[in-house]
C-alpha cells in the first residue's frame, strides 16, 4: 500500500500542483464556426472539446416526430488522435454511445423542449484531446453551444468530476493521470442554481460515509464552472452586441 502513489502530497498538493478543491484552467469561446446554428469550444486543462448545435429544424425521420415536444439528437465522437494510444474508430463504440445518451439526458433536463413541437435539435460534440473529465467538458461545451444557438434553456447545465484522495479528502476535477492512478471517480451533471442533479455516475465504489462530501464538492465545482461559463457568455454577447452598437453603453 505504501508503494502506491499518493494522490495528495503531505502539504496538500496534487500531482499537477493543484490543491484539492481547485479546477483545472477553463478557457472557452462561443461561435467558433459559422455554419452550425451554435458552436462552442472549451478547454478544461488539456481536455479540448468542440460542440456544434443544429436546429431546431424539421424532424428528419417522420416516425420520431413528437406532437408536443422536440427531440434532441446527440452524437459524441472522439478524434482518433485524441488519446495517447491512437484510437481505431472515432465513434460507434460502446463508450461513445453511452456518453451520447448521458449527454442527451443532461440536455433534456434544461432545454425548453415544449416550445418546439414537431422539431429536432442536433447536438454534436467532438473531443480533440481527452485528458480526463471528457463527459463534463462535453456537457459544458454543449451548454455553451446551445446558448450560442439561442435555444431557450431553464438554466445552465454544468458537469464536474470529483474523487477521493488519500481515502478521505474530496478532490475536484480529476485529470487523466489521477484517474489512472486510482481512486473512485464521481461524475455529476447538475443545474447549479437550483442545485438539482440531472446525472450522477460513479466508477469503483465509495463508502456511504464519504459520498455526501464528495457529492458536495462536485456540486461546488459545478457552481464554479457555471460562473466561468456565465462570464464567457456575457463577454461574447457584449462583443457581438458592440458590433451592432447596442452594447456601447457598457464601460
Amino acid at each position: 500500500m505504501s508503494r502506491k502513489k499518493e494522490l495528495l502530497s503531505r502539504v496538500g498538493l496534487r500531482l499537477d500542483g493543484r490543491r484539492a478543491d481547485e479546477l483545472r484552467r477553463i478557457r472557452c469561446k462561443l461561435g467558433v464556426f459559422t455554419q452550425p446554428d451554435g458552436s462552442a469550444y472549451i478547454e478544461q486543462g488539456l481536455t479540448k472539446v468542440l460542440a456544434a448545435v443544429y436546429g431546431p429544424h424539421q424532424v428528419r425521420s417522420k416516425q420520431k416526430a413528437q406532437h408536443d415536444t422536440c427531440i434532441i439528437n446527440t452524437q459524441f465522437s472522439m478524434a482518433v488522435f485524441s488519446t495517447n494510444e491512437r484510437k481505431k474508430r472515432p465513434r460507434g463504440d460502446r463508450k461513445s454511445t453511452e456518453l451520447s445518451m448521458h449527454l442527451q439526458q443532461a440536455l433534456l433536463a434544461v432545454i425548453k423542449t415544449e416550445l418546439y413541437p414537431w422539431s429536432q435539435i442536433d447536438v454534436y460534440v467532438e473531443v480533440l484531446h481527452g485528458d480526463g473529465g471528457i463527459y463534463p467538458a462535453c456537457v459544458n461545451a454543449a451548454t455553451l453551444a446551445i446558448i450560442d444557438a439561442g435555444i431557450p434553456i431553464k438554466e445552465y447545465v454544468c458537469a464536474c468530476t470529483a474523487s477521493l484522495g488519500n481515502n478521505d479528502i474530496p478532490m475536484l476535477d480529476v485529470s487523466h493521470q489521477e484517474e489512472v492512478i486510482g481512486g473512485p471517480t464521481l461524475t455529476v451533471a447538475a443545474l447549479p442554481m437550483s442545485g438539482k442533479i440531472v446525472l450522477m455516475e460513479m466508477s469503483q465504489r465509495f463508502h456511504l460515509d464519504h459520498l455526501p462530501k464528495v457529492l458536495d464538492k462536485a456540486l461546488e465545482g459545478c457552481k464554479d464552472i457555471k460562473a466561468i461559463l456565465d462570464e464567457a457568455v456575457k463577454n461574447h454577447v457584449r462583443e457581438m452586441g458592440s458590433s451592432t452598437g447596442w452594447a456601447n453603453t457598457t464601460s
Binding site: F33, Q35, A52, S77, V80, G92, D122, Y124
Partner: peptide, 16 residues
C-alpha cells in the same frame, strides 16, 4: 491516411 468527417461539419455526416 484516415479521414473522419465530423458531424460538427454538417448533420448529413451523422453516424456513418
Amino acid at each position: 491516411f484516415f479521414v473522419d468527417c465530423s458531424a460538427n461539419a454538417t448533420p448529413d455526416f451523422e453516424g456513418r
